[in-house]
């Protein structure tokens, strides 16, 4: 009788410990995957790289009008994508706060930012800003070959950040 009671008690303790150890919940620490954003980014990436290929030798401001519509369409698409990406709020709970603190401690300098939007929203916004700067420079004075290369390099970096993150959300 006592042995049976002891075994029953151990089982219950283990069950309670298991419950307590996991706080009893699954967690969501990142926004949901959005296929529209992911597909839109891949499409915009192709269009932007096509424009970069066409301007890789630099541009002449006199031929800007031939590129203006392409710039504007891309910038409009990316502004819309940045809105869609940012419209998914980041899950905010005690788990994310705790994890953020640990990550910031390990990284030394804390990352001072607005955690209410996914990082991809910022990257997409910067892609649109980069294209806007390129368009305005192209219109004003044309773009040198090195500037064209630098604009492309910047776009590649931000596109890589946004696409990697958005694809990673598919879980």
């Amino acid at each position: 009788m006592l042995v049976a009671l002891r075994e029953w008690s151990y089982s219950r303790i283990l069950l309670v410990a298991a419950f307590l150890s996991i706080a009893g919940c699954a967690a969501q620490l990142a926004p949901p995957y959005d296929k529209t954003v992911a597909d839109g980014l891949n499409s915009a990436n192709t269009e932007a790289m096509t424009l970069m290929a066409a301007t890789s030798q630099g541009t002449d401001k006199n031929s800007f009008s031939a590129r203006e519509d392409t710039y504007n369409a891309l910038i409009g698409t990316l502004d819309a994508l940045a809105l869609s990406a940012g419209a998914r709020p980041m899950p905010k709970n005690r788990f994310t706060d705790a994890i953020n603190k640990v990550l910031e401690k390990r990284g030394g300098k804390p990352i001072d930012d607005d955690d209410s939007t996914p990082p991809s929203a910022h990257s997409i916004k910067k892609i649109a800003e980069t294209l806007t700067k390129m368009r305005d420079t192209d219109k004003k004075q044309g773009v040198t070959a090195i500037e064209a290369q630098a604009f492309k390099g910047q776009l590649v970096i931000y596109f890589d950040q946004a696409i990697t993150y958005e694809n990673f959300l598919q879980r």
Binding site: A30, N100, L103, G107, I111, D113, P118, P119, S120, H122, S123, K126, I157, Y158, Q161, T164, Y165, F168
Partner: peptide, 8 residues
């Protein structure tokens, strides 16, 4: 932005 993406 790279650091933030990595954290994400």
């Amino acid at each position: 932005s790279f650091a933030k993406t990595l954290r994400g």
